[in-house]
């Protein structure tokens, strides 16, 4: 599928993950999780081409469905390093679940539940603070407010974080929850469980 969505840039660099090629083009691997619906793959690939990425290969792991029923997809692409963040952001803006983007980034996932006056304490500010200050990226949010927004509500937030960064992210989340008087239900990490 090489060049299918390319925007006309440069020669492909075979087998060149992270190696800089002529014109400063670099190869990257992006791992996505797609909903199992027709058209999802195309929807995931479009933002890559539209933002200056050149597709090298796509590995669509249909046989390796996640516990949540999603299909992992690994995409190798190349682009100018300056464009890579735009590509990842465009994928996220399109609602695509990015598990890993480039080396050492978003290597793990972490789910937490927040309880309290989520709306009154500005949920969108909470989420953008997580993105800016907590060094994590929100990949999924489920909100439950069975008693209306005036009563405490709950949100499950799934975060993509850098590998090995869970302790620091949880510490930042605790500070954020304290500041907004929210109850943070953390995952139990450590041990085999």
């Amino acid at each position: 599928m090489t060049d299918e969505c390319a925007s006309g840039s440069s020669t492909p660099a075979p087998d060149a993950e992270g190696v800089e090629t002529d014109g400063g083009i670099q190869a990257y691997t992006v791992r996505l999780e797609l909903v199992d619906e027709p058209g999802e793959l195309l929807r995931a690939l479009t933002p890559i081409g539209e933002n200056g990425g050149n597709l090298l290969s796509i590995h669509h792991e249909r046989g390796n469905i996640t516990p949540r029923g999603h299909i992992p997809v690994e995409v190798d692409l190349e682009c100018a390093p300056a464009r890579f963040d735009d590509i990842v952001q465009a994928l996220r803006d399109a609602g695509i679940n990015v598990i890993q983007a480039g080396p050492e980034r978003y290597g793990e996932e972490l789910s937490v539940v927040l309880v309290g006056h989520l709306v009154e304490t500005d949920l969108s500010d909470t989420l953008s603070t997580i993105g800016h200050d907590v060094n994590a990226s929100v990949v999924d949010l489920s909100l439950a407010a069975p008693d209306g927004m005036a009563e405490p509500s709950s949100a499950r937030v799934r975060l993509a974080i850098d590998s090995g960064n869970a302790a620091a992210v949880l510490e930042s989340l605790r500070e954020l929850a304290d500041a907004k008087d929210l109850c943070l239900v953390e995952p139990l990490v450590g041990g085999d469980a």
Partner: peptide
């Protein structure tokens, strides 16, 4: 402060909530 909705959200993700001491 743990409402049923928090337990529901946890269950959707294959998890539940326990009072854990460390």
């Amino acid at each position: 402060n743990v409402p049923p909705s928090a337990l529901d959200l946890a269950a959707e993700d294959g998890k539940t909530i326990r009072l854990v001491g460390e």
